[in-house]
């Protein structure tokens, strides 16, 4: 079963269009959503959640249509946007109002998580570090038994240790096979560590959306001499030249038996960078 299924989602702005987005996330897995700043990650998330109005397309979450069952769907979602709220209020105050919106609120679980994350509920939100704020938001989401966590750039602004902790927390959360996590990031190493699926967006279009292993299998990093570049140039997604020859990215299916240059496995970084470069070389 898919937790999220998006078909032909479209949102038009004057200077930017989110164009025909299709993606689905199977229940119980982590999907990472990568792309440059401004590629449309936040717009996709906001549009699929009806926070901004879409111009076309269908969104179904937990198998329910968002237009028909928005409230029931949202009561099972935890959404963490990059922006914090009520910085001058204490955790206790915010929680008091937050929980009144959820029938499924589990006070015992909430206290457990506060304890586990060392969160002091008498502190003000702006007294917490960025990492602790995130943990608080995740605590709120988990305490109403959210089955889907959607996080917009949760790791940006975190130090490496906090980031690693967070990614480990994601994997702990999905151990129960019930919870699905969808998070956007522009840091590909976040995905190397924990994502099961990866969706790659560029200029408002989805370039790839599949399991991370398949994504890496789909591409090959190649390097060779200038002479070899001439024979492969047309098949490359993009390349960079240097004084020794060239480096480039190619789709695995475009490789030929006769190719003589060196071929290797790309990292997600390579895939993102070369796909973002214009064909025909850097700049």
């Amino acid at each position: 079963m898919n937790s999220i299924e998006i078909k032909n989602l479209t949102k038009r702005y004057k200077t930017f269009t989110l164009d025909n987005i299709n993606l689905s996330i199977p229940k119980g897995y982590i999907m990472g959503f990568i792309g440059e700043n401004g590629a449309g990650k936040t717009t996709t998330i906001k549009t699929m959640l009806n926070i901004t109005k879409r111009d076309a397309g269908q969104v179904s979450i937990f198998g329910q249509d968002i237009d028909k069952d928005e409230i029931s769907i949202k009561s099972k979602i935890g959404y963490v946007s990059g922006n914090m709220f009520y910085p001058k209020k204490t955790l206790k105050e915010v929680t008091k109002y937050y929980k009144s919106f959820y029938d499924e609120w589990d006070e015992g679980l909430y206290l457990d998580y506060l304890n586990k994350f060392n969160l002091d509920s008498s502190k003000r939100i702006d007294e917490l570090s960025k990492g602790m704020q995130l943990k608080y938001l995740i605590t709120l989401a988990l305490s109403h038994h959210a089955e889907l966590l959607i996080l917009d750039e949760p790791t940006s602004g975190l130090d490496p240790v906090a980031r690693d902790n967070l990614l480990e927390l994601f994997q702990t959360i999905i151990e129960n096979e019930e919870t699905t996590i969808f998070f956007s990031t522009h840091i590909t190493s976040d995905l190397e560590k924990c994502a099961d699926y990866v969706t790659f967006i560029k200029d408002g279009r989805i370039i790839e959306s599949c399991s991370k292993d398949d994504l890496i299998d789909k591409y090959r990093l190649v390097n060779g001499t200038e002479k070899e570049l001439l024979e492969v140039k047309e098949r490359l997604i993009a390349f960079k030249t240097n004084s020794f020859g060239f480096n480039g990215l190619i789709k695995t299916i475009d490789l030929k038996e006769t190719d003589s240059f060196k071929v290797g496995q790309p990292s997600l970084d390579d895939i993102m960078i070369y796909n973002t470069l214009h064909k025909g070389g850097i700049l």
């Binding site: 702990t172 924990c194 099961d196 699926y197 991370k212």
Partner: peptide, 11 residues
Amino acid sequence: AAKELRVSVIT
């Protein structure tokens, strides 16, 4: 195992 080794469930 995926959590402990910090790799994807699918892997």
